[in-house]
């Protein structure tokens, strides 16, 4: 297994060098370097879509590199990864089209390849699935679950429908990640150690690179206290998280007192 990319140190964290990007893209490492507006102005909408497009590219690149790095993985898992890659590619293409429709363009805003940079530092497949599918993509289920409504309320039902279609795909990606981690763990309980090690690596990196509340970002917006997105319970259950796991996510997000009755 060898990822053909070097590494770099950022804030004491070792990150994988980024995947190839055209010169029009400015790649940054910190959230504070991004152009992030809290409201839904025209420029803020384009930036959200541009950021999302790059993140979909990152997910495409991670799934693809897993196909390259783990030729001995079970064929069923490789087939799932290939499908994920194709889905993420379609998502990136659809977002690119939507950006064009809103008179934006490729490279209009800085992009951050953190998902790739940290996931590719893990050299086993269960660890990568734990970070990318079970954490980042599961987080995307929560984000998309609420973003659809944000866009619709802002009067853009086209983008809301695009995000809704992506949500359906992302649930499948999280589901197969959960199923394969479970299956691999049943065959070899030491897989759990790999998963735990990968998640610890991710948590350390997020802590080291997180922006400070009160800091100003690249467009002069003061960064507030980071709020976890609302947990999309139904989406996570469809993605094969157990009820116990969903309850744990809700507790961590500070929703202990309002855990849905059906999970109580």
């Amino acid at each position: 297994m060898s990822v053909p990319f070097g590494t770099r140190e950022v804030e004491g964290v070792t990150l994988r060098d980024g995947p190839a990007r055209e010169d029009c893209f400015e790649c940054v490492d910190a959230d504070a370097e991004m152009h992030d507006w809290p409201e839904m102005s025209e420029i803020a909408r384009r930036e959200r879509l541009h950021r999302h497009m790059n993140n979909e590219c990152g997910a495409l690149e991670i799934a693809s590199q897993c196909l390259v790095d783990f030729p001995e993985a079970p064929w069923g898992l490789r087939l799932n990864l290939a499908r994920q890659a194709a889905d993420e590619a379609r998502h990136a293409a659809v977002l690119r089209r939507r950006i064009d429709q809103l008179y934006g363009y490729k490279g209009e805003f800085p992009v951050n390849n953190f998902e790739w940079a940290i996931t590719m530092m893990v050299d086993d497949l269960p660890g990568r699935l734990a970070i990318e599918n079970r954490t980042f993509e599961a987080g995307l289920i929560d984000i998309l679950g609420s973003l659809r409504d944000v866009w619709r309320e802002a009067g853009d039902s086209t983008t809301a429908d695009v995000l809704d279609a992506m949500l359906a795909d992302e649930i499948n990606h999280v589901r197969f990640g959960n199923r394969w981690i479970r299956e691999m763990t049943e065959k070899d309980p030491t897989v759990l150690l790999k998963v735990a090690k990968a998640i610890r690596k991710l948590a350390t990196a997020i802590q080291a690179l997180a922006s400070e509340a009160g800091e100003e970002n690249a467009v002069g917006v003061t960064i507030g206290k980071r709020m976890a997105p609302a947990v999309y319970v139904q989406g996570r259950l469809e993605a094969d998280f157990t009820e116990e796991e969903v309850k744990e996510v809700l507790r961590l997000a500070g929703f202990r007192s309002i855990i849905p009755h059906e999970l109580g």
């Binding site: 190839a20 055209e22 010169d23 590219c57």
Partner: peptide, 11 residues
């Protein structure tokens, strides 16, 4: 995929 810079070709 990760070693091709052009977005549309990567896709």
């Amino acid at each position: 995929v990760p070693t091709t810079a052009e977005l549309e070709a990567k896709i």
